[in-house]
């Protein structure tokens, strides 16, 4: 039997009294390229601009390019089979590792590596940014007041994870 194994399978979750870092495994990621109006009847209303995420029927829909979307759903998702033939579909579930960082200093930890404004008023829940962390491309998705999901390239996941947990050290109380 073939088993799935995450890039962070042997990484330890990081916990301090103010901050948690760990992996959120078990999602599917489908990249769909095409016109929003052709895709949205299946997925639900798609976000109008890059950087906005919406949730629809248990999935998170992100616009990651002018005509490109990410559909993040449960680990097993049959949406691929329902999408119109005109859409260009690329499954990417294995290409990204999802790291979750949550806690009061989460924004400060991210600001160490990412040249973006992480102030509450500037990086709000429901928005995301494709940017660089530790020289690697990441998608940082704010999913709560001080909770972020980071989609890192699978092959860089261990490096990024170690970087994050090291960056977190100074905030431990």
């Amino acid at each position: 039997m073939l088993d799935r194994r995450s890039a962070l399978a042997s990484a330890k979750p990081y916990t301090s009294s103010v901050l948690q870092i760990g992996e959120a495994h078990g999602f599917s990621l489908l990249q769909v390229a095409g016109l929003a109006k052709a895709i949205s009847p299946i997925t639900g209303k798609l976000p109008v601009k890059v950087g906005l995420a919406v949730t629809s029927e248990g999935r998170t829909l992100m616009r990651t390019g002018p005509n490109q979307f990410w559909i993040i759903g449960p680990e097993v998702d049959d949406i691929e089979t329902k999408l119109p033939e005109i859409a260009i579909i690329t499954p990417l579930s294995h290409s990204r590792t999802r790291i979750v960082i949550e806690g009061e200093p989460a924004r400060n930890v991210l600001a160490k590596g990412v040249p973006l404004d992480f102030h509450h008023s500037a990086f709000k829940s429901g928005t995301f940014a494709m940017t660089g962390l530790h020289h690697t491309p990441v998608l940082v998705h704010c999913v709560g007041e001080n909770r972020f999901e980071i989609y890192a390239l699978r092959t860089f996941a261990v490096s990024v994870y170690e970087w994050l947990t090291d960056a977190a050290l100074e905030f431990a109380r």
Binding site: R5, S10, H135, T155, F156, A157, S159, W163
Partner: peptide, 18 residues
Amino acid sequence: GRTVGLHFRPYRLSPLHD
């Protein structure tokens, strides 16, 4: 900064690394 030692640059591990 912390761009020293293990974090001097990112490292990339094959899915077959383990």
